[in-house]
Design a protein around this nucleic acid. Structure first.
Lengths: 358, 358
DNA sequence: ATCAATTCCTAATACGTATTAATAGGGGTT
DNA sequence: AACCCCTATTAATACGTATTAGGAATTGAT
């Protein structure tokens, strides 16, 4: 009794023909519109029977063409999605986005931004993202012009991470780097540290700006004046050698270091090397804490003192906000900041009194 | 000069009006049909300019309703995509699929199959996958009925991992478990082992069947008769305790073990515990090798002897095959098997002569 | 018997795109 | 000038569904 393999999928018209009714009636029965309860029971049964016999399934494209929405959320990252050496950095975001997207009843459209550059948001003047109802954005190498264009087009999107755009309000879910860094400074001060070196990335991105703000805020709260020479740009995290640290502790009286982790594993590699070199020991010779999560984290590596971004949470929240935006197309931009969590670790300790007796 | 925010997304009709041409011309310019090279350069530029100004992007639903391609490949997994404890298992697949999809000029549509079960391929008789041109499938908890229905509908898809379906040919990219297992047996035999315990999963899945076949093939090649009592079903990998191993080495003369890794980290956790218990040492007291990759692999864990699936390769190949299928809709199913790679590790060694002097 | 009310269904249409057959405009050849 | 050919463009149409206004048949009321 199995029907012969069809070339073409059965449509509502096929069902209508078979059941001797109109296509509109079929639609009403199968999709339960507002007036679907007016359908006579006998008719309903006939339609359902015909549908079952033909193995009908609705054509999503047609439905969403009619309805305007296709129940897809996009995820676009401004770098390759799955670079192996950054997997641990991105994975929680992906996980959170995927999870919440599914929970909201959407499917996830992954836009790839390969290095060749021809997979940007706008290719040939066409916005690829619009394939989705809305989009979550992610990544550091943001092309601001494209962001601005997205805002101009009124396309619904939410950035994971705080992003500011002059003259435009955009929605984002950020992490509270300021408070987290400030708290870390407070903790170091409590342990007796007064001269804290802050190693920042050269690039002037929002996270870095926030960390610096937190650094200043933490010192201010402790009544310590900022020594600008202790804010140092570290271009390559690999430079963080024992000699480098020794230089600062020796000549500048530094007793603690705050350093921004890189997305790759250069920093942790350097730290591990320094840590095992035995000429410089954390926290005995110098305390050190990371202003964020090191990537490629494994339980076996040393448990560095740090704060940790609520990545999965940020991602989930971003999706929720996006769905909100879709329901309220003309609402204002939503901006949320989530707190980071402090990870005590074992790389900070009381300040040694000897070098810089205050 | 900024246009007022639009309610409605720009369509080809809007562009046509603005550029002073017809919708058909817009379609030809933007979608590059067969006769698209007949379009005058000036017209083309006008259309592209108008499209850019209006922030046009194609409506996927309309395009795919029309029957054209929408340049989306789907990825459907029969389990949650990003379960934390299985991340290392799935990540290489995702990475490979994403990479090759981008290279082929497609975007990736991630279908999620959350545990609640309402995100199956067919929900309410509707095949969700059809939003994509074709689909890569992945996962162990395969719902065979759904697979059969996909084949029946003639929907283009490729499974990562060998899957057999009675009465239907489907495309897949599998790993050569048979040869890999057989080679592992040969290596153990070369080291003097004669009684090799094979711990298999109870479920009768293709990978497990292949491993068992490889086990038998390896022994046959070495001229060793299979002792059926040495093929043992291990329901919970956590049961692999020192006492358990001791039992087999003591009472059954086993000198080597082949065990199927679980997707979670139960097996490696158990092995680590056993390994550090000091009452049982690998490979001194017993050799052991894994028939596949342990998940959550980190360099710090012990380097178990094993073979490794070419996961990223499998994924990339699957995408290539899928694209092939799309170009040749009525071609036969493609079935590819890729070789595994042997990872020497340090958990096998020469067989001890003492227990079972042969 | 006439009209109103109710029940059940259908015709018509819109959604946005891709495609094909047809057409207008120009330039050449005789 | 009549003809044809080539190029660049368009009108028309199909895809499958959801929705709405309205129509036919039936029932009920007077």
């Amino acid at each position: 009794m199995v029907p012969p393999p069809r070339q073409r999928r059965a449509t509502q018209v096929d069902i209508a023909r078979r059941a001797g009714v109109s296509q509109a009636t079929v639609s009403l029965v199968l999709s339960g519109g507002a007036v679907s309860d007016q359908i006579a029971e006998s008719t309903r049964q006939a339609v359902l029977a015909a549908a079952a016999e033909l193995g009908y399934s609705v054509n999503i494209a047609a439905r969403s063409l009619k309805g305007g929405r296709n129940h897809l959320l996009g995820l676009y990252t401004f770098e390759p999605v799955f670079p192996t050496d950054q997997r641990d950095f991105y994975f929680p975001f992906l996980m959170g986005v995927e999870e919440e997207t599914a929970r909201q009843g959407y499917d996830l459209l992954l836009f790839s931004s390969v290095s060749s550059g021809d997979r940007a948001i706008y290719t040939g003047g066409v916005n690829r993202l619009k394939l989705a109802d809305g989009c979550v954005l992610l990544g550091r190498n943001v092309r601001r012009e494209e962001l601005a264009e997205l805002v101009r087009e009124d396309f619904p999107f939410v950035f994971i991470g705080r992003r500011e755009l002059p003259g435009a309000e955009l929605s984002y879910v950020g992490a509270d780097y300021v408070t987290a860094t400030s708290d870390l400074v407070a903790e170091l001060v409590r342990l007796g540290h007064r001269r804290i070196l802050y190693l920042r990335e050269p690039a002037d991105t929002e996270p870095t700006r926030d960390r610096e703000a937190g650094y200043r805020q933490g010192l201010a709260a402790a009544g310590i004046e900022v020594d600008e020479s202790l804010i140092h740009e570290l271009a390559d995290p690999a430079d963080l050698s024992p000699a480098f640290v020794g230089h600062w502790t020796g000549t500048a009286g530094v007793t603690a270091i705050l350093v921004e982790p890189s997305e790759d594993n250069r920093l942790t590699t350097a730290l591990d090397a320094t840590s095992t070199a035995a000429t410089m020991r954390f926290p005995d010779d110098c305390s050190i804490a990371l202003l964020g999560d090191p990537p490629s984290w494994t339980p076996e590596l040393r448990d560095w003192t740090r704060f940790s971004l609520p990545r999965a949470d940020m991602a989930r929240t971003a999706v929720q906000i996006l769905v909100d935006l879709l329901g309220d197309p003309h609402g204002a931009a939503r901006q949320v900041t989530l707190p980071c969590s402090f990870v005590p670790g074992d790389s900070i300790g009381p300040a040694p009194d000897r070098r810089w007796p205050r």
